[in-house]
Amino acid sequence: MLKKTLALTALATVAIAGTAEARDQIRAVGSSTVYPFSTVVAENFAKTSGGKAPVIESTGTGGGFKLFCAGVGPEHPDLSNASRRIKKSELETCEKNGVKDVVEVKVGYDGIVVANSKAAKVMSVTREQVFRALAKEVPVNGQWVANPYKKWSDIDASLPAQEIEVLGPPPTSGTRDAFVELVMDAACEKLPEAKAMKDAGKEKELKGKCQSVREDGAYIEAGENDNLIVQKLDANKNSFGIFGYSFLEENADKIQGSKVDGKDPTFENISAGSYAVSRPLYVYVKKAHVGTIPGIDGFMKEFSSEKAWGEDGYLTNKGLIPMPKEERAKFAKAVAEMTVLSAGDL
């Protein structure tokens, strides 16, 4: 008897579930860097509008676009968070699957910091020095060789005579992508040896050299959990860590950010664009869903309001670096008018 009831309930659950209905709440996917900001907006939006709170998944930027571009309809997400701009190929996939109208909204900036324990000295590095410390192969006397540097002082006498030990994100992370692009790639391409390779037409090979991080133990992949990196830095004053600005802000009593190219990773420097290692954060909206899924326009309005992304907004309390005023106005307008992104803009 009991078993019969159980089996029946089981069948009933499956049957009910089979009839997937239209959604009454927003679904967002994408970057884990934008996740902490989107979630705050979602919460505030739900509490002030009285509706259901949007469900936000942290899938990584690339994974987010894959889900976002899979099609139009309630089974596909409405928004995609991204810690880089959408790629042309991704937009093409979108169009192929019927997602023809994507609205691009830049929401702010995020800084990536190189930090160490407060117990140690503040370090001042250039991007080239970071590249030399972490690349798999570096040019020495015109020849590309496996990274010979063991200590920071081997790279430059001004740096401390301690072992190179850097904790950073794994290749699956958007922070890692951005770090490689903004630090490693940027510094590497300026090297004379790189220019020589470029002139020799070996661009692809050069990209590989510029973007490969050493695997001999000096760079330690610490997983996606940035809190863990902070704890490890606190315990070992000789090691450095790479993570998002908000973790530096939250743990300013334990760790300090290194100067990169002479600039401190402060709120002001990142906002002004003078700190080199910062990246824009985006939210992409599926315009076809606006109107069918309730609340998307309201949610985006909340996101683009001054009380959220403005200079004193609640997102800055969570570590988002706001855009300059004109840029905020531009993207607030994009939200209001739902300006569609075309492949030509990329």
Binding site: T13, I16, A17, Q25, R27, Y35, S38, T39, A42, E43, A46, K52, A53, V55, I56, E57, S58
Partner: peptide, 17 residues
């Protein structure tokens, strides 16, 4: 299957996120 997500609302049925 998307259960690693930020969900504010308490689910009322097994179909809610």
């Amino acid at each position: 299957i998307g259960m690693v997500a930020f969900v504010v609302d308490i689910p009322h049925t097994p179909l809610d996120p």
